[in-house]
Design a protein around this nucleic acid. Structure first.
Lengths: 217, 217
DNA sequence: TTGCAAATATTAACACTGTTAACTATGTTT
DNA sequence: AAACATAGTTAACAGTGTTAATATTTGCAA
C-alpha cells in the first residue's frame, strides 16, 4: 500500500503548493489580483488543474482564511503566559490591532470578506456543524481573559460573554475604521488634533485601555 | 443661451438616470452584479455611453456612497429634536445599527468597501481638499452629542473626540461583525445563550447602553 | 438653407475573469 | 496486451471593465 500513500502524499502536496502560491499572490497583490490563472501559472500547471483540488475560488480563499485564524491564534497563545489578566487583555488588543495592520489582507479575509462565508454556505445546505472553529477558539480565549479580569475585580456585574463581544466590537471597529481609511480621514479633517493616522489608532487604543482600567471595583 | 442650459439639464438628467439605475441594481443585487453593461441596458444606452458621464465604475460607486451618507445624515438630523443628550446618543446608536441592517449595501459602500476611496485617490494625486464631507458631518453630529452628554454629567474626564471615536468604533464593530456573519456564528456555537442572531445584536447594544449609562458622575 | 464643427452615442475590440465539457496522456490492474 | 481509472490538458462559454475608432445627431455660422 506504499504506492497509494505516496500518491496520496503527492496529491496533498500539490494541494498545498496551490495554496502557497495563492497565499503569496494574495498577500502581495490582494484578492482581485489573485486569479486562478495566475495561481496556475505560478505553480506551472494548467488553470483547470486547480479545480481538481479545490471546488472553486472561494474554496481556496476559505482555506487561506483558516490559515489566517491559525496564525492569529498562535499569536494569542503566545500571550498565555502573561499572568496579570488585565495585562493579558491589553496585550491581546495590541496584538489584534497589530495583526490588522501587518497582515491586513489576512484580516480582511477573516473578518470582512464575504467569500469564505459564501463557500461555507455553498458546501453545506443547512446549519451543519462545520468549521470556523479556529475563530471561535480565538474568541474563547478573549472570554477566558475577561473572566479572569472579572475575578481580579474588573468589569464586575457585567455578563462576561456579552462584555467580551463588546470589547471585540470596539477593537474590531478600530481596526476596520483604520484600514478602510476613515480614521485617517477624520484626522485630515482636523477633527482630532494629533499625529498622523497610524498614531491616532495607537492613541485611541490607549484611551480605550485607560477607560477599561477605571472599571475596577 | 437657453438652449445650452437645456442641454446641460438634459445631460445632468441622464447622469442622474445612470445613477438611479446603478442604485437600483446595487441595492437589489449587490456590487458584483452591478456591471456597466447591466446599468447601460437598464437605461437602454450603449455601455460606453456611461463613460461620458462617469470616469469609471468606481466613480459611480463613489456617487452612490455620497447618496448613502446623505441618507444617514438625514436619519440623524431627525434626532436633533431629542432634548436629552443621552437619549439622543441612544437613538443615534439604534439608528446606526438599523441602517446597517436595512440598508446593508449602502452601509458596506460607505464604511467597508475600498472602491469609493480608490476613486478619491485616483482623482486627486495628493492630499487635496475634497469630499467625504457628509461622513465627517455625521461624525460631527456624534461629537456634539457626546459633548452634550458630558455637560449633562456623562463621560467626564474623557477627551470628547477620542471618546466619540471609541463609541463609533464599538457600534461600527457591532454592525460589521453582525453583517459579516460573526455574531450569528458565535451564537450558533452556543457561546452566548440567547435568541437568534438578530436579537443578540439588540441585546449587545442594550448591554452597551446600560454600560455607558453607568458612566455618570 | 446649406456646410461644418462640436457634442454625443455606438460598434468593435482588448485583455482579462471564473468555470465547465471534452479530450489526452499516464500508469495500474486484470 | 486490453481495459480502466486518474491526472492534466486544450478549447470554449459567458461574463467583466475599459479604450480607440467610428458613426450619428445637433447647433450654429456663412
Amino acid at each position: 500500500m506504499g504506492i497509494k500513500e505516496r500518491k496520496e502524499r503527492h496529491k496533498e502536496d500539490l494541494r498545498q503548493r496551490i495554496l502557497d502560491a495563492a497565499k503569496l499572490l494574495f498577500l502581495k497583490e490582494g484578492y482581485d489580483a489573485t486569479s486562478i490563472r495566475k495561481i496556475a501559472s505560478a505553480i506551472e500547471f494548467s488553470p483547470t488543474t486547480i479545480y481538481l483540488y479545490y471546488k472553486d475560488k472561494n474554496d481556496i480563499i476559505y482555506a487561506l482564511q483558516k490559515e489566517g485564524f491559525k496564525l492569529l491564534r498562535t499569536k494569542f497563545s503566545a500571550l498565555s503566559n502573561v499572568e496579570n489578566p488585565f495585562e493579558r487583555l491589553k496585550a491581546m488588543g495590541r496584538t489584534y490591532l497589530q495583526f490588522s495592520i501587518e497582515s491586513r489582507e489576512f484580516y480582511e479575509l477573516m473578518f470582512v470578506m464575504k467569500e469564505p462565508l459564501e463557500f461555507l454556505q455553498s458546501i453545506c445546505g443547512e446549519g451543519e456543524d462545520e468549521q470556523w472553529d479556529e475563530g471561535v477558539e480565538a474568541f474563547n480565549f478573549l472570554v477566558r481573559t475577561i473572566a479572569d479580569c472579572q475575578q481580579a475585580g474588573y468589569f464586575v456585574g457585567h455578563d462576561i460573554k456579552m462584555f467580551s463581544l463588546l470589547v471585540w466590537s470596539t477593537v474590531h471597529g478600530l481596526s476596520t475604521l483604520n484600514m478602510h481609511g476613515h480614521i485617517t480621514h477624520v484626522v485630515e479633517k482636523h477633527l482630532i488634533e494629533l499625529q498622523d493616522g497610524g498614531q491616532i489608532l495607537e492613541a485611541a487604543f490607549n484611551s480605550y485601555i485607560k477607560f477599561l482600567e477605571q472599571l475596577k471595583s
